[in-house]
């Protein structure tokens, strides 16, 4: 692993304006992503986990500029992605692709599989029709389908097959970075591992870098080198996978790990159950955002925001009491 990050995200923020009070003119915001920073290094997989609504998907979309960020910076190699003009952005997008969560809505139902996979090649003006055709055939076999499938429409495929088609489309332009937005959470459990294995295989063969988003630590564990845990628009802990699994320091990470079902009853750990709901990102709690649900909270937690601190080399955690945990 080289030391130059392929993707650097700095204090990224995405706020959605809410209907303000018409009389007072006060505007309030839904802070979906609120100051997220991390680096991704070539060839690695960064897993991102968190509950539904914590801003994982919004973060992914903001990085790829499918939505405009409110503040912050995103660097892909040396390009400042958020400042690029449309033409520059179009070029960069060849290198940064996305795999979507819902394989049913991510493929245009009126296109054949061939039209779906060839579209990126047409957009980026790949030379001749025969070359494009060759590339499409190569791609469809890479993802484990056959040439015969090219003439069919998406509705004729199962969820897993559709996700493979989506993967083929994302890989068409030889990207280096692929953002996977919960690519397996809409699939049957039996299919999930097939798609995960495919993604792993492709990563090795094509030297891909993944940002892998999931709401399930057990899925992320299989594929990630490093894992970032998100809560209410912030990253609360980021570490190497083994480190995170063996010695989680943030109480939220501990609770998430405790929630993974353990098939062996003798190995069952005592569970720290989380109480309450995720607070609304429109009105995040004061101080540490996790404090209303935290079993270890003290006074400082509700008043002061914890800064990211280094718990070990490569292991950053945002908690006042991480040393005791």
């Amino acid at each position: 692993m080289s030391t130059e990050p392929i993707l650097a995200v700095k204090k990224l923020k995405k706020y959605y304006p809410l209907k303000g009070n018409w009389f007072s003119g006060k505007k309030s915001y839904l802070k979906a992503v609120d100051g997220v920073s991390f680096d991704v290094y070539p060839g690695e997989t960064l897993g991102v986990v968190g509950e539904s609504g914590c801003g994982k998907s919004t973060m992914a979309r903001t990085i790829l500029r499918l939505q405009e960020a409110t503040a912050g910076e995103v660097y892909y190699q040396n390009y400042n992605v958020l400042q690029l003009a449309p033409d520059g952005l179009r070029k960069i997008r060849q290198n940064m692709q996305m795999i979507f969560q819902d394989p049913y809505s991510s493929l245009n139902p009126r296109f054949t599989v061939e039209q779906i996979i060839v579209e990126p090649l047409i957009i980026h003006k790949w030379k001749t029709a025969t070359e494009r055709r060759q590339r499409v055939e190569e791609l469809i076999t890479t993802v484990g389908l056959t040439k015969r499938h090219l003439k069919r429409y998406p509705h004729e495929f199962s969820g897993g097959q559709r996700q493979r088609i989506g993967i083929a489309r994302a890989l068409a332009l030889n990207p280096q970075l692929v953002v996977c937005d919960e690519p397996v959470s809409a699939l049957d459990v039996s299919i999930q591992s097939q798609v995960l294995n495919l993604l792993k295989k492709l990563q090795i063969e094509l030297a891909l870098t993944y940002v892998f988003i999931a709401h399930d630590l057990s899925v992320v564990k299989h594929i990630s080198n490093r894992i970032a845990v998100m809560y209410l628009g912030r990253i609360v802990e980021i570490a190497q996978s083994e480190q995170l699994y063996d010695s989680p320091r943030h109480p939220y990470t501990q609770a998430l790990l405790a929630a993974i079902p353990e098939p062996n009853p003798r190995l069952r750990r005592p569970r720290t159950l989380l109480r309450g709901e995720v607070p609304s990102p429109a009105k995040p709690p004061s101080g540490c955002r996790f404090h209303p649900r935290c079993p270890y909270r003290t006074e400082v937690c509700s008043s002061t925001e914890p800064l990211p601190q280094q718990a070990a080399p490569g292991h950053t955690v945002s908690c006042h009491h991480y040393k005791q945990l």
Partner: peptide, 17 residues
Amino acid sequence: EMDYVEAARALGAKNSR
């Protein structure tokens, strides 16, 4: 709001397309 529209944008498609 459909993902395939977003996917097309992620691929670099222009508005007209």
